[in-house]
């Protein structure tokens, strides 16, 4: 056997290469199965940056589908609830420049929470079906109410209500949620130009 190989170097080379190819092919195949990544990790990371309002203002049915779409190359500025900070975070993750919010999808507004005017509720369950996070409690012909802690303020329950008894109210800050505000930056007085526009100088 060995003498056959030493005599036919061509055959030996061929066998060696085929052998190596099979070995590494097998290894790679095994690794691909063993260390398989379940879902696209970038989608996961994008999904974590999105505000999880599930409002659909981006045109996708929820935050994860939009994350998937961004991973597939969609624009990153379609999320009004997340606003500029979310856009910046996504831009930072994807290492691209951050565009400003696409006005087509809505404007960045203060966070609100849905409140049902309970006297007027007729118990139609339409809002319950519309809520993407199951934050509305109630049953047919019984009053409904919003679990304020779970409400994402997505607005989706307002439109289906046949008696218009849902209000989107801004979150009232109480003493426990209060935080110090950042000091206002005064103009950086060093190195101003004659016109006083320090941005020019910078």
């Amino acid at each position: 056997m060995m003498s056959l190989l030493t005599d036919n170097t061509m055959l030996a080379a061929l066998l060696a290469l085929v052998g190596l190819g099979t070995l590494f092919g097998g290894l790679l195949g095994y690794a691909a199965e063993k260390f398989k990544v379940g879902s696209d990790p970038i989608v996961q990371q994008l999904d974590e940056l999105l505000p999880q309002t599930q409002c659909g203002q981006c045109g996708f049915p929820g935050c994860r589908p939009y994350a998937q779409s961004i991973a597939d190359g969609d624009a990153i500025n379609k999320c009004p609830p997340g606003g500029q900070s979310t856009i910046n975070a996504i831009a930072n993750l994807l290492d691209i420049s951050a565009p400003s919010l696409d006005e087509e999808h809505g404007e960045e507004e203060i966070r609100t929470i849905a409140y049902i005017r309970e006297d007027e509720c007729i118990g139609c369950t339409k809002c319950i079906q519309a809520c993407p996070v199951d934050a509305i409690l109630g049953a047919a012909k019984l009053m409904h109410t919003v679990i304020a802690d779970e409400c994402t303020g997505c607005d989706l329950c307002v439109e289906p209500c046949p008696v218009d008894c849902i209000d989107m109210l801004p979150i009232v800050e109480n003493i426990h949620q209060w935080q110090w505000s950042a000091p206002e930056h005064s103009a950086d007085l060093i190195a101003t130009t004659a016109s006083g526009m320090h941005e020019d100088a910078a």
């Binding site: 974590e48 999880q52 994860r64 934050a135």
Partner: peptide, 27 residues
């Protein structure tokens, strides 16, 4: 005042992240 404000921002961001995680789970 900058530090206090930033501490508040970070605490809030963490809290928002936690609620977002709950929202995602519910969704």
């Amino acid at each position: 005042q900058y530090y206090r404000s930033s501490k508040g921002d970070i605490t809030n961001a963490l809290a928002t992240k936690a609620t977002a995680a709950i929202s995602r789970e519910r969704f």
